[in-house]
Design a protein around this nucleic acid. Structure first.
Lengths: 205, 205
DNA sequence: CCCAAACTAAACTGTATGGTCTATAATAGC
DNA sequence: GCTATTATAGACCATACAGTTTAGTTTGGG
């Protein structure tokens, strides 16, 4: 089965290789991950791995790109609109916070920061599928809210970026630098309420 | 000369070693930096290097800690107080921006993110000498401003963190991910004015 | 049941690297 | 000037690792 998509990837162990590589790269970084370990983790021989990917860099980039895409998939979906702005902002903040504090987000952020010098396209990919995408989604919502007269914003992009940063306050940085493992509910509420209060003080009608 | 401080570091090439190691580590990261290169860059033989530092990890930690301390030294100094709040916030923002966009800050941030898993103390050191220190300085200023009736803030720490994040908006992240090289003056003004406006909308009297 | 393609384990190559050692040279206090 | 400390170059060792090769095994379509 699945013989009808033979164009791009050839062979059945492809997904296994990617999966193993993802685990190891995300945990160890590019340099830290050895090809032997990746192969073992993937349950695949080294020769098979090299039959799919000519070298380690290409495998890494492929994995990293897929993870960025996955990041985009998990990004905020702004759907309901018949909710008061304050509530809506709070809901969105909580979703953002949940993502930002996830193991996945922390790992991919770390790896993209570390490797975006060696692989410049990686930085671009991450930014587009992360901060930029979120900016667009937020801007979209803010625009509608403005049209409904619930917010008053002249620079939508700026407002979106500001909101992102406010929600990241303290907790994200503390987790990235291994100061805390997970924030408590109280800590989360403090940051989110603070973010929403500040945002509405500036852009509320 | 200088023969009166023999207790801690022993020998005259110590500073050379540190200097060379700093250059190479900041440019290449921990794994990427080879000891041979560090020795060459420091103008010192490998044996000499190893006579000061028993292994590469210890050398790295020493360098990284010193850089964190240096980061603390360059941190915001809040001095004059007879300046209107808006102006003061703008001045401080510009100083923060200058630092955040410096080669130094970008490099040390990148390396601390990348290596704070391998060296947990590094994350703590960075946080204390960076975000935390700035939080304290800002809080201090905010407190005085509150006492003078120029601001109204209940959670000083939160306000300080929020201000930091607002100033970092967009530009810092874009630089870390190699999207832009340096921001234009207009971009800087847009972010800083936005940050100050937002902050005062929330905490202004 | 056969055969070709995909896969496997494991040995192998070459290179880079962390760290040590040795034999020699500079440096300074006495 | 003599001697002890400190530094030097560079050979050297062991290891880890990317990538290749080989010789054999699994798999699935015809």
């Amino acid at each position: 089965m699945d013989g009808n998509t033979p164009e791009i990837k050839r062979g059945r162990k492809y997904d296994q290789v990617i999966a193993g590589a993802r685990d190891v790269f995300l945990a160890q970084g590019f340099e830290g991950a050895s090809v032997d370990l990746i192969a073992r983790e993937a349950g695949v021989s080294k020769a098979t791995l090299y039959s799919y990917f000519p070298d380690k860099r290409i495998l890494f980039i492929e994995v990293a790109k897929q993870e960025c895409a996955s990041q985009a998939d998990r990004a905020l979906q702004v759907d309901s609109t018949d909710v008061p702005v304050r509530e809506m902002l709070t809901i969105m903040s909580h979703k953002m916070m949940e993502f930002l504090t996830s193991n996945f987000a922390q790992r991919i952020f770390r790896i993209c920061v570390a490797e975006s010098d060696r692989f410049p396209e990686l930085g671009r990919e991450f930014y587009a599928s992360g901060p930029k995408l979120l900016e667009d989604r937020l801007s979209e919502y803010f625009k509608h809210a403005c049209e409904r007269g619930e917010l008053k914003i002249d620079d939508l992009g700026l407002a979106a970026m500001q909101f992102q940063e406010l929600v990241k306050s303290e907790i994200f940085v503390k987790m990235i630098f291994n100061i805390i493992e997970k924030p408590t509910d109280a800590e989360v509420d403090r940051i989110i309420d603070g973010a929403v209060d500040m945002f509405l003080a500036r852009y509320g009608v």
